[in-house]
Write a protein that binds this DNA or RNA. Structure first.
Lengths: 224, 224
DNA sequence: GCGACTTTGTTCCTGCGTTCACAAGCGGTT
DNA sequence: AACCGCTTGTGAACGCAGGAACAAAGTCGC
């Protein structure tokens, strides 16, 4: 079983979760884990977890489990965490500020190397240890830092032009928080995170679940 | 074809996207749209879009397309947007503040009716037109406002206890931004949004795509 | 009024992801 | 040294999502 050919996307997402759990276990001094325990902590099926791990070759000991530190390093290597990834963030509004100030990225191999905003009011502010720069400097910073990931937290109207500029500057992956579908050239990965869509799915599933819906903000209306 | 039995979860997520596009088209005064155009704006396949729409019965005119306003209302009704959903938000840190201040929810049928934080420093601040309340008031507010959705933006360590309190108070759906897998009683829907996982998937896909990836962090950057 | 074009709605098919269940292997114990 | 329990790793079946092709239906033009 080679690890190079391809790993399913859904598996990659779960590997990232396993990695976080393993890191916590290692910090707690834990030596080994079983697939059942790890699966419970990650919120997945034990069999699925073993299948996910099988994509990176045998890395467990039968009858014992997985060595926490070893497995952690293995997953980190497969996910490409041996080298830090430089990211630029465009759009320093409410959400952008939160992302820039969120400490959860740094110790996971991602580092913001540039913050950008079109508004002169924002430019010059400091968030953490980085200044907010004007959009004019975007291309230069991307080229200089060899940033490979761009995060878009702008209003929807300007997301596509920002995407174009990022890709033109050499960014190869984009995480988009603006509520629009972006079109990027082939070879550039785009991933969409849409908060209101998440809420709507949640609300629908609740409604579908046969919610008694006692009395909400408005009377429940039956439609034909 | 009934709309009640079940609509696939993936379809529901896309319906929310279509709804947003349709709203924009309606505001632009557009009368009808074809599946091809709508699919392009939503970033999906035209055939898939038609299949999605078929779950809510025939709502288009052959040879013409879909009536924008009618389809918008139809989707809104199916998604349960005829009644506003009351949400409470726990954890008013960087991300929580951004969510509370984000205007993209209000006009989509979701309204925050309570903001909560455990830190006395945060309590009493106002974000928008809502005050940050202490955790002690959570149960009362949930009961009073009949909030059905809880959003967790706390540190990972306290996410599970917060989840327990929310469900105990009667919340039926939870959107979790904390990087932990939550366990909730049956009948409560949990949806996870993990920002660092998104980044890691993005980085892996780029690496797998055959990225030359000579680009590590630039030596000139003196940060961290 | 009739033909032809356009577009929807449906059906089939292919591929992926998930789950269950079994065989193989290792450690501990007697 | 051999047995037994425990855990991993793998193989197969099920269900679901995605995509393409076809038929139905309605409108526009003549």
């Amino acid at each position: 079983m080679q690890s190079r050919p391809r790993i399913p996307e859904a598996t990659v997402a779960r590997l990232a979760v396993y990695l976080r759990v393993l890191t916590g276990l290692a910090d707690g001094g834990r030596g080994t884990v079983s697939s059942g325990e790890l699966a419970a902590a990650a919120g997945v099926n034990p069999a699925g977890l073993r299948k996910d791990l099988s994509h990176l070759g045998p890395c467990g000991t039968r009858g014992v489990g997985y060595e926490v530190a070893t497995l952690r390093d293995r997953i980190a290597a497969v996910l490409g965490m041996e080298t830090a990834h430089a990211c630029v963030l465009v759009g320093i509004g409410n959400l952008g500020s939160a992302l820039a100030g969120y400490g959860g990225f740094g110790n996971r191999g991602f580092e913001f190397v540039g913050l950008f905003d079109a508004s002169p009011n924002r430019v010059g502010q400091r968030i953490g240890d980085l200044p907010v720069r004007p959009m004019e400097e975007l291309d230069a910073v991307v080229t200089e830092t060899r940033a490979t990931i761009g995060v878009i937290a702008t209003p929807a109207e300007v997301a596509q032009p920002v995407c174009d500029r990022l890709t033109a500057a050499g960014v190869r992956s984009i995480l988009n928080f603006a509520p629009v579908a972006l079109s990027a050239p082939a070879g550039v990965g785009v991933r969409q995170v849409d908060l209101s869509v998440e809420l709507q799915v949640l609300a629908f599933l609740d409604k579908q679940r046969g919610a008694p819906a006692p009395a909400e903000l408005a009377p429940a209306g039956g439609m034909a």
